[in-house]
């Protein structure tokens, strides 16, 4: 499976590295620019990106100008900016950005949105390999060493979420809302039960870790 490569242009070095670190944990490749002009010049020679996360207020060249350059190479763009006025949002989205996220943001939200955009552009592989498992999101099948394992729909969804956020702990509440939806008034016990099922069916007792006070983490 080829890793998706993501361009990050953000003038705050700390924030840029934080995004990169998160993406790295989820098996993405990243490239960081802290300056708009440098980014524009860099893209000219190196434009093999699957997605770009752009800030708007940048030194050198602003995000909207950068958007036009990035669009030329058919790279989908997500804006990540402190500018929360409607005019900027409209300008960004009409200009061709796929998404517009206002700072301060939740890292998990950014990750999910990145995934969704990549899915839309079919740049994300629909087959996820993790811990010896092959998960086909299109066919809704899981197999280990070519042998298919039967899973209930909710168990499959839960596995997908964990696999996509590999190495990241997700709280029970978040899992509940991500898998069952925000309308679901279930208890976090539901999550525990399903995790138990996954561990048993897929033999993932060592891989699905319970992180105290936080939730669950799927490790390689």
């Amino acid at each position: 499976m080829s890793k998706a490569r993501i361009l990050i242009v953000e003038d705050e070095e700390a924030i840029a590295n934080m995004i990169a670190m998160n993406l790295k944990v989820s098996d993405y490749d990243t490239r960081i620019y802290n300056d708009g002009k440098e980014a524009a010049e860099g893209i000219y020679s190196d434009h093999a990106f699957d997605l770009a996360v752009l800030d708007v207020m940048l030194p050198g060249l602003d995000g909207f100008a950068l958007l036009d350059i990035v669009k030329k190479y058919n790279i989908p763009v997500i804006f990540l900016t402190a500018k929360d006025d409607i005019a900027s949002k409209v300008l960004g989205l009409k200009g061709g950005a796929e998404d517009y996220i206002v700072k301060p943001f939740e890292m998990l939200e950014l990750m999910v949105r990145i995934e969704k955009v990549l899915e839309r552009f079919q740049k994300n592989n629909h087959i996820i390999s993790v811990a010896g498992l092959e998960i086909d999101k299109e066919k809704h099948t899981v197999s280990r060493n070519g042998k298919a394992i039967e899973l209930k729909p909710m168990e499959f969804e839960l596995l997908c979420v964990l696999a996509q956020n590999k190495n990241v702990a997700i709280s029970r509440e978040k899992l509940l809302s991500m898998v069952w939806g925000t309308d679901f008034y279930g208890e976090t016990r539901t999550v525990d039960v399903h995790i138990g099922q996954l561990r048993k069916k897929l033999d993932l007792h060592d891989n699905i870790k319970t992180v105290s006070k936080l939730g669950y983490r799927l490790e390689e």
Partner: peptide
């Protein structure tokens, strides 16, 4: 204030949740 706060909370969350 927002930028350092975002960074601090982001990194600390990363440390807490992710296997780094």
């Amino acid at each position: 204030l927002r930028t350092p706060m975002t960074a601090i909370s982001g990194y600390s969350e990363l440390l807490l949740t992710a296997k780094l």
